[in-house]
């Protein structure tokens, strides 16, 4: 028991192995990076000393805590999230159907490729005025914009993924007599999973961006506004620290989904299968 404290060489060795472990652990690295960024932010804000324009890290976190405990920020986030998930799911289902049809028919492929090149560069938020005109102020308009934001980049990634499935694996599937939907589900989707996951990540980021921007424009619509509305309201009242708290919430949710959800999916699929390092 007392060996550790008595023997300096073992304690040095233990320290070294701990350091090695910390340095090799991605989680520790990530926390380190985040801490460094927070420190830089704090120092920059203190040096700047204009809290009304640029609140410091500590101020923002305090505001975030207050917003969560007293202003239902979590509920606002959940409102945003649930709309987002709805739009995301609709768009993914649509994209998978379109891309599967594009694999089967050259005409649908041409159609899909044309649609992607037309609509992918079109910022989703630019569609909002039209969507509001057609569907009024409400969730429907938000969903239209979200689906637009997710559908095209994801379809592009999935189509690219399907196209780059090795010829041998296609032939193996056909050799077993797989055709149509079962061919797509049992060969193409798993073989294209690295691209599909990449598309999911891109689409997720696009969806988040679009949703917050759309809520900034008309958060009033729903009885309980989402995160974007929280940011907009506090900006109007010049609660800059709360604006930053809202932004921090967006970032935290983004980081959590990217760093936890997608990382877990990747580690049990493409990394485990050696399809991605």
């Amino acid at each position: 028991m007392s060996d550790l404290s008595l023997n300096p060489s073992t304690s040095a060795a233990a320290w070294k192995s701990l350091r090695n472990y910390a340095w090799n652990s991605p989680a520790v690295r990530k926390i380190l990076v985040l801490a460094l960024l927070a420190l830089t932010w704090e120092l920059a804000a203190r040096f700047n000393a204009k809290p009304i324009l640029f609140p410091s890290f500590v101020e923002t976190m305090t505001a975030l805590w207050q917003a969560i405990t007293t202003e239902n920020l979590l509920q606002a986030s959940w409102v945003s999230m649930s709309v987002l998930l709805k739009g995301y799911a609709i768009a993914l289902a649509l994209a998978l159907v379109l891309v599967s049809l594009a694999v089967a028919s050259r005409f649908v492929r041409e159609l899909l490729q044309t649609l992607i090149s037309m609509f992918n560069p079109l910022p989703a938020i630019a569609l909002l005025p039209v969507a509001m005109l057609w569907f009024g102020l409400g969730e429907k308009s938000l969903l239209v914009v979200l689906v637009h934001a997710v559908l095209w980049p994801f379809a592009l990634a999935a189509l690219t993924g399907f196209d780059s499935v090795p010829e041998t694996q296609r032939l193996v599937g056909r050799n077993y007599g797989l055709r149509g939907p079962s061919y797509v589900a049992r060969i193409l989707i798993p073989a294209a999973l690295p691209s599909i996951l990449y598309g999911l990540k891109i689409a997720w980021a696009f969806a988040w961006r679009t949703l917050i921007a759309a809520e900034l424009v008309f958060g009033v619509s729903s009885s309980n506004g989402g995160l974007g509305w929280f940011i907009f309201r506090n900006r109007n009242e010049l609660f800059t620290d709360k604006v930053f708290a809202g932004l921090a919430m967006v970032i935290i949710i983004g980081l959590a989904v990217e760093g936890i959800v997608f990382r877990i999916i990747e580690s049990v699929t493409v990394r485990r299968w050696g399809m991605q390092r």
Partner: peptide
């Protein structure tokens, strides 16, 4: 080709 085994 070696990739005839489905990697997943």
């Amino acid at each position: 080709e070696f990739d005839q085994l489905l990697p997943w």
